[in-house]
Design a protein around this nucleic acid. Sequence first.
DNA 1: GAGCACTGC
Length: 1000
Amino acid sequence: MSERDSLVKDSLHELIGFVDKSTVRFVNHLIDKSADIEEFKTKVKNALGTDDHQKVDNFSHELWSQLRPNRSQTKRRLKTKTIEEVEERVDLTPHETNASQKSGSKGTDSSRRGYESDESMDSSEEERVRDLKERDEFSERLKLKDKNKTRNIATNNDKKSYEEAAKRLKLEAEDRKKIVPKLRVESRRLYLEKRKEDKLALLEGDIADEEYLFNDVNLTEKEKAGLEYRKKVLHLAREHDRARDLEKVQRYHIPSEDKDSEYVEVDDTERAPNAEQKKWEEERLGIARLRFGAKDANRKARKEYELVMDAEIEFVQSLTIDGNHFEEEDEEKDEKKTKRQTLDETRRSLPIYPFKEELIEAIREHQVLIIEGETGSGKTTQIPQYLHESGFCNDNKKVGCTQPRRVAAMSVAARVAEEMGVKLGNEVGYSIRFEDCTSERTVLKYMTDGMLLREFLSEPDLSSYSVIIVDEAHERTLHTDVLFGLVKDIARFRPDLKLLISSATLDAQKFSEFFDDAPVFRIPGRRFPVDIYYTKAPEADYIEACVVTILQIHVTQPLGDVLVFLPGQEEIEQTQEILQERQRKLGSRIRELLIRPIYSNLPTDMQAQVFEPTPPNARKVVLATNIAETSLTIDNILFVIDPGYCKQNSFNPRTGMESLIVVPISKASANQRAGRSGRVAAGKCFRLFTAWAYQHELEDNTIPEIQRVHLGNVVLTLKSLGINDILHFDFLDPPPHETLVLALEQLYALGALNHLGELTRLGRRMAEFPVDPMMSKTLIASEKYGCSEEIVTISAMLSVNASVFYRPKDKAIHADTARKNFFQMGGDHLMLVNVYNQWAESGYSRQWCLENFIQYRSMCRARDVRDQLEGLMERVEIELKSCDSDNIVIRKAITSGYFYHTARISRTGGQYKTVKGQQTVLIHPNSSLFEEKPRWLLYHELVLTTKEYMRQTIEIESQWLLEVAPHYYKDRELEDSTNKKMPKQLGKSNNDLNRVYPKL
DNA sequence: GAGCACTGC
């Protein structure tokens, strides 16, 4: 309950002695609707029928004085803000209207013209003005709600969140208790290691000297024994280091005799802790020795395994090919160094520390600063702290720092809270979807980029922030790209706002140009070197090549885990099979090889296996998708195999079709992958393509997401931020014109924009939902059809994507049967409701999921999304109501959002044609309607895989389209020979005809 | 009768 509600409640209790939810709502309503206090008083008197005038007077005054001033303040503030915005954007205004008219008239649909001419100009104008007024009133109500809400984790307004916070903070405190001694131990350990390393180096020097000096001198037995002993000690110490580096929990073990010889060939110094700097310099000076060692090992192994290795790939090292040129050009590239991961060192030891003063000075001097720093420089954790120390958080202003991923936001915030010695959620907090861990005391706020984007909706000028840091900007997520344009815009009319854009190499110059030539501040990082090997000739079959390379590494290289990047689940399973087969054939001739797949759709417990430590004397091979590129880090990887492909989603605005296809990766991505091999020690990366291909065939950077996806939601968000001229919005890399126009057209057809391209009340409400515009329209339409409960479930289930059903290859038949058991009359959306409801009935049971081949994790996520959507439904003033599974109304509600996505069976049968666009499409074989082949279909999405498929379909009646989107469909379009001609009024007048389906 | 990379709100 909000603060406002409790105030009303208390006052009411005093006045009439009882209180309930609807009375509170009613009084709230009266306050909002009354023009002045007298009106309010009269209304209260009339409504409550109480005679005690004094009491009513007190009651009214108290509420009015407490609630209304706020409101008028909000209003005033809002107004000035709007004026400011208008002034700021005044130069844009002329083409705003032009642009939207242009985009409007660009659509050649005759239906659209029909829609406009349906109403006379006057009434449509009146309608528009009224709608805009309602829209603004709605926004205002939202603002008020937000203001009163201020659900704070550190206060006990909201009991539930308070308890949660208390629990979390307690855990946090316990963690710290645990961590401090751990830190002490760690620092002692580091010291000892350093000391040991020094001693070992001394010993090594001694031995070398001795051998050199007394080479041809006859030593006594004792002297010889002494030398041998020292050699042995050195060897064992090195051995121990290596064993520990490769395997965290592994204890020292005595290498067997035959393995001994193998180790001699490896450059042991590279394994020693704290030797990376030395190693780095060494490599710079000339790595011949190292390369020779590796080659030698190769040759030796070849001899030994001649019979078992039926194929072998020849690799060439990049440095041999590209020489100095390559090295110089890419001096600061990731592949050459890797970050030192342990931040357990004190803050002072971070590479950023020496730059502190300089950095603060630069920030004071310039409004926008690009920070180019490699991962491991400490920028994410340190810069906000420096800003805090330098007084950027005075006057209740915050420093905001965005991250592309939730985990990053959480863990970095926790880390910084610890460093500053405060409780997480107080001075340092984080804000991610489903979890707001901040309070009014929060000054350093870490959040996901999408979260800051949502914050723009309630605070368009970000007035509570003094600094915004956009971290990991080089990743170019959809949200960061949109943020760029927005923060650039507000920076113009808020000179006091500082902007820091932080990026890893390469892109810095581009960012600088975008932000009006903002200066670039460079911070060095620390990384281990990584050797890059390319194939001599292109590989035709990358899966086969992967398998061969894995085995080649396994038999020729020292112990150390291998990470293989594959495009998808299918390739991973295939590789795993082949590898297991080969392994069986080789039997005991090779060491143990543990194969561990990982991809996001893999159940959590199986994912966890990837992180289990490798047993001694074995090697772990991780077969991963792109998930291992940025999202998760696997320790102790020394070798990376990179076939150079990934699966990429791209959206074709002309066909409205998404495709997920295997494409070559970019150079940036290849370097990122290579960097994963050198996180704990110097690593090696084997690229299954040629150096020539790397130089000439790979793009420098991956195409940014914003140019590859459907932008419906982005455009709606921008519109509701008052940016009308979408087509000229300042994008760092503008998305294709067609994508924007398509998004605008769809929003217009959905009723989110009026014919002038202005946001309507409906559009404003739609923008509140973090879903596709078509889905948010469906959510709002569900009110009319009285099935909001079900639609919220459908929306949540669809948002977790296709990852609801788990289908392991070996139990495919069982999984399919389980899935078929959920089928529902009407189509896939109804099946999803069925799945969710059954799960809910099982008490959200994990066991139930296991039995039914459902992914527990996805269901939990759906539940989270569902809870959030429920909250938002209340926010946009829609009551939650169930239709008791009347599947007609559910499908009608979906149709009113997805009337764009319809298809009709074609004469040949089996195939479908989209109603608009006449594209040939097929029902996805996983759909419950695959065998049924109804005449009219609505699909959730169109995907191009091997064929053009409609995924998630429901059966609809063609006349529903006229009912829900009369402006979009003409009668004629909905008739054809397969569909017997219907009387025009049928859809509306004879609803009972639709009820031929049994209820669920 | 196919086969869904990865985030995020």
